[in-house]
Simulated scan of single mutants.
Amino acid sequence: MNRTTFRALTAPVLAAGLLTGLATVPAHAAEPRNDLFSRADNLTPERCNAVQEGDNFEATGQTGEPTHFGAASLPVQSAWSKWEAPRSRTVVMNTNGSDFDTILAVYRGNRLQQLSPVAVDDDGGNGNNSRVSFDASRGVTYRIAVESYGAAQGNYVLKVIC
């Protein structure tokens, strides 16, 4: 079949609108921008009282990614952020205001396969939201995974308070 024949066969189908549904991309058709550890969002400003919003629609796990809260976080649907502590002190992070059942995990380390857990929680915040508290060290970058309980998806709010 040559190009002319192909155009002749597909033109009536397109004109009838039979293929238009194929070109429609549903909302949240792609993974979030911070689905990968290497593309973690910076919590800005890099200071206390930072707030970030995002979602985990179509989020996936990666090879070597930890299971953030055991079987409760399977399948892995994490969105990654990072935050550098401006000073040494106790820090609270939470997902209060998120519209799905979250798990919050905080790590130290620069490579996904070599992360050291700092804090993890499921449901320690308001309702099904999560809350962690830990002693942060000035200048250390913390890697934060906002994960779902089970296969929950939705919009999250990540807050840093110190």
Rank of each mutant, 00 (worst) to 15 (best):
A50T: 13
G97R: 10
P12M: 11
Y107W: 07
Q52W: 01
Q153I: 13
R39T: 15
L18A: 11
D121Y: 02
A85M: 03
N128M: 08
Q62T: 02
T63L: 09
V157S: 03
T95R: 01
L104W: 04
L158F: 00
L9M: 14
N126Y: 06
L19N: 12
E31V: 03
D101E: 02
T20M: 06
Y156D: 04
V118G: 01
D101I: 07
L14P: 00
N110E: 11
A23E: 06
A119G: 10
N128L: 05
V157F: 01
A11Q: 11
R108S: 13
D121W: 05
A152Q: 12
T60I: 11
Q114G: 11
S78G: 15
R7G: 05
K82V: 00
T67W: 05
A136P: 06
T63S: 13
D123K: 15
E53I: 03
D122I: 06
G54S: 08
A15M: 03
A50F: 02
V76S: 14
P26Q: 14
N2C: 03
A50C: 04
T141A: 07
C162N: 08
V51R: 15
Y107I: 12
E58R: 15
G70H: 08
R3I: 06
T102W: 01
V120M: 10
G139K: 07
E147L: 07
H68V: 12
E147K: 13
S81D: 09
F57E: 04
G150H: 10
R89L: 04
V106K: 00
W80C: 09
N126D: 10
V120E: 09
S73A: 14
G127T: 04
N49A: 06
G54L: 04
F69M: 14
T5C: 07
E46L: 09
G97Y: 01
R39A: 07
V132N: 09
V120I: 00
Y142H: 02
Y107G: 13
R143D: 09
G154Y: 02
A30P: 10
H28S: 11
T5F: 01
L43D: 00
D55L: 05
D123N: 15
V157K: 15
V146M: 09
F37M: 13
V140G: 00
A16Q: 11
N56H: 06
C48I: 00
Q77H: 06
G124E: 09
A59I: 08
D55M: 06
S137F: 04
G97T: 02
P117N: 08
T90L: 08
V157M: 00
N128C: 10
R3E: 07
V51Y: 02
T44F: 02
R143V: 09
A23V: 07
R143F: 01
A145H: 13
L158S: 03
